[in-house]
């Protein structure tokens, strides 16, 4: 597969940090801030991925997704609910006709340490239960062993199985070891058919960061320059504050441009971020600093 043999460009970590420092020095005020907060809410994949997930927990989360905050009806709803395959049916039912998508992790999430057959079955189960989007993990072990073709083939096989469902490919960047590797994994995923590339499972301490996201956005941009095709991006894990979310949006705007600024092309994998965005929105509206007690937790 020539696409995979393509050499990924090197990444200079200090240069990336410099770039991030410039982005985070940006000042996002007034109208822009309000729009950014709303946009960020609309981009959330509200996530619960617990061994302890129950029908009740998932249903409550779906309620939260639909009724974020009664006081501000102008606010959009989140983009999707993200759950395990076994919970897809429950979520689907709870969300009804709300238009909120159901995303399901699959392919032996989070480690990916299983056979392709099992991974396909896992994916199929999620799809059969009605998942709109599949969040697969790559085989990091194989990647680190240098078996890039294996990783690529797995992605393209799952992509084929997905049919109409959009495929998010989780690189688990915290396990890859360097930004050069993040870039290489991004290129493999993109060229193997990923609709989204996603940073992390949220199951290890090193989750999404701005530098890692910047590298992945550059891969998306370079692919766009080469082919004219847009790939979507999803940082996940570790994004719980509004200010950080706004910095992510700023980064997307600067690296990819305004056309990526919608939930079709950018998502946040997060849970507690939603309430922080709501609080900031309320603060911007009322001028008063907010308390968590006034925002529902589910």
């Amino acid at each position: 597969m020539q696409l995979v043999n393509r050499n990924s460009p090197p990444v200079d970590q200090v240069g990336i940090e410099d770039r991030i420092a410039r982005v985070t020095a940006r000042s996002i005020k007034s109208d822009m801030k309000l729009e950014g907060l709303k946009m960020a809410i609309s981009m959330i994949d509200l996530t619960t991925l617990e061994g302890a997930d129950t029908n009740g927990k998932v249903t409550q989360l779906c309620t939260k997704a639909q009724y974020l905050c009664n006081e501000y009806p102008e606010l959009p709803s989140v983009a999707a609910i993200c759950v395990y395959p076994s919970m897809v049916g429950i979520a689907k039912k709870a969300l009804g006709k709300s238009g909120i998508k159901v995303a399901s992790v699959a392919t032996a999430f989070p480690s990916g340490q299983s056979s392709l057959e099992v991974k396909l079955l896992d994916t199929k189960m999620a799809l059969d239960n009605g998942a709109d989007e599949i969040d697969m993990v790559i085989s990091r072990g194989k990647f680190l062993q240098g078996e890039y073709d294996f990783v690529a083939d797995e992605i393209s096989t799952i992509k084929e199985a997905c049919g109409e469902a959009r495929l998010k490919v989780i690189l688990e960047t915290g396990e890859l070891g360097s930004l050069d590797q993040v870039r290489k994994a991004s290129d493999i995923a993109i060229y193997s058919g990923a609709d989204f590339i996603k940073t992390s499972t949220g199951k290890i301490p090193k989750a999404a960061t701005l530098p890692v996201t910047c590298v992945m956005l550059e891969a998306i941009r370079d692919y766009y320059f080469e082919t004219g095709k847009m790939i979507a991006m999803k940082p996940a894990g570790g994004i719980s504050k509004s200010k950080l979310a706004l910095h992510y949006l700023m980064l997307v705007k600067e690296v990819l441009g305004d056309q990526w600024l919608s939930n079709e092309w950018f998502r946040f994998g997060a849970s507690s971020l939603a309430n922080d965005l709501l609080m900031q929105y309320a603060k911007a509206q009322t001028g008063a600093y907010q308390s968590y007690d006034y925002f529902s937790i589910d």
């Binding site: 940006r26 000042s27 996002i28 005020k29 007034s30 109208d31 822009m32 801030k33 729009e35 950014g36 946009m39 949006l249 705007k253 990819l256 441009g257 305004d258 056309q259 600024l261």
Partner: peptide, 15 residues
């Protein structure tokens, strides 16, 4: 990048 669409996410003055 392709043609610039007017975005809602434009810089507000931050003087």
């Amino acid at each position: 990048m392709a043609a610039k669409n007017k975005s809602v996410f434009e810089f507000s003055p931050a003087l």
